[in-house]
Amino acid sequence: MAENASKKKQSWWAPAQKHLMTATGYMIPFVVAGGIIFALAVMLSGKPSVPTTGNLGKLASIGSAGLALFIPALGGYIAFSMADRPGLAPGFITAYLATQIHAGFIGGIIGGIMAGFAVKYLKKIKVPNNYRTLTTIFLYPLGGTLIASGIMVYLIGAPIANFMTFLTHFLNSLSGAAKAPLGAVLGAMVGVDMGGPINKVAYTFAQTQVDTLPFLMGGVGAAGATPPIGLGIATLIFKKKFSPEDRDAGIAALLMGTMGITEGAIPFATADPLRVIPANTIGAAVACLSGFMFGCLNHAPWGGLIVLPVVDNRWGYIAAVALGSAVVALIVGFAKKPYVAETPAEEKAEANDDDIDFDIQQF
């Protein structure tokens, strides 16, 4: 019985995770382009507000367009992953409607799932071969949109919107020590797999609520920068613990961290997972928790130091990144053993091992 239950759980979880990860991968470029251009417009204006006129106002509108599209993209590509190209339009439209009725990212995800299922079941309708092309461009998009969007608008949109309002008020009501568990959990999720599925769940949760709960990105954005910056600092302070190649990678990691690219820590985690992954997890948790405690508000759905122009309490945000990075650097620096370069003899032995050839003819 337990084995059957486990198989059943795996049977729905594996495809669900695949669809969500596929959609998140397609959504990220909208977030990156929109968030960075938006932050750049604010930074160039020199004021802690969004420019609305002139060339910078136009630049900000470009960034805002990217940010307005990322929840529809999330829903659209969930449906695409489930039902291929015919699911795209129903998924985009239903998720867009979810944003219009304030159902938020949960509405976008549910809308994408409904559109995907609607198109999948429409595909099971037997249609004569002569009309197959017509189904792809007419029946599936039209039927899928009417079914999924109709359910969203007439049935479940309002309850989801009410739940999102409740969630927003509840999270906004958290203060002081009440925010600590949430910050620690989200930060740990960001640091544990550095851009993987767990990281993306935490990031998506914060990104899709940046308009209503900017404190979430205030912590998560700082946490995302922490692993690569911390590891870069470790290569500078604890030089004897790293190879020359690692020290070069540390400089790249520092730059990637300032840009909010957590994946800059992956080469170090791959080479030494037992020491690096726990350090990243703890450091990112400290950074996110600190961002929450310092009251940092990040108005861009991105992280790193590049978003400073759109952060309220910038010094607190910088302090959160610094604290988390210091934790990563110190844990890795003290835990790692000194680097020992291979001797020429060892290198030669390895080369000989790699070059061993077997001649079948000799047997």
Rank of each mutant, 00 (worst) to 15 (best):
M1H: 09
E3F: 14
S6G: 15
A16M: 15
Q17L: 15
Y26R: 10
F30D: 05
V31P: 10
G34V: 07
G35R: 01
I36M: 06
A39D: 05
G46M: 08
K47E: 15
V50Y: 09
N55M: 14
S64F: 13
G66A: 06
M82G: 05
M82A: 10
H102Y: 13
G107N: 01
A118T: 11
K126M: 06
T133V: 14
T133G: 14
T136D: 15
P141A: 00
Y154D: 14
M164L: 07
T168F: 04
S175L: 07
A178G: 08
A178N: 13
I198N: 09
I198C: 00
V201P: 12
A206P: 01
Q209L: 06
M217T: 10
G219Y: 08
G221I: 00
G224L: 05
G224P: 01
T226W: 09
L231Y: 04
P244G: 06
E245C: 00
A253F: 00
T270R: 03
T270H: 08
D272C: 00
R275T: 07
P278V: 00
I282N: 10
I282K: 09
C296L: 07
I306E: 00
L308T: 11
W315T: 06
G316K: 04
A322M: 01
G324Y: 07
A329N: 02
I331Q: 04
V340L: 11
A345Q: 15
A349W: 11
E350T: 12
E350A: 12
I356F: 15
I360H: 15
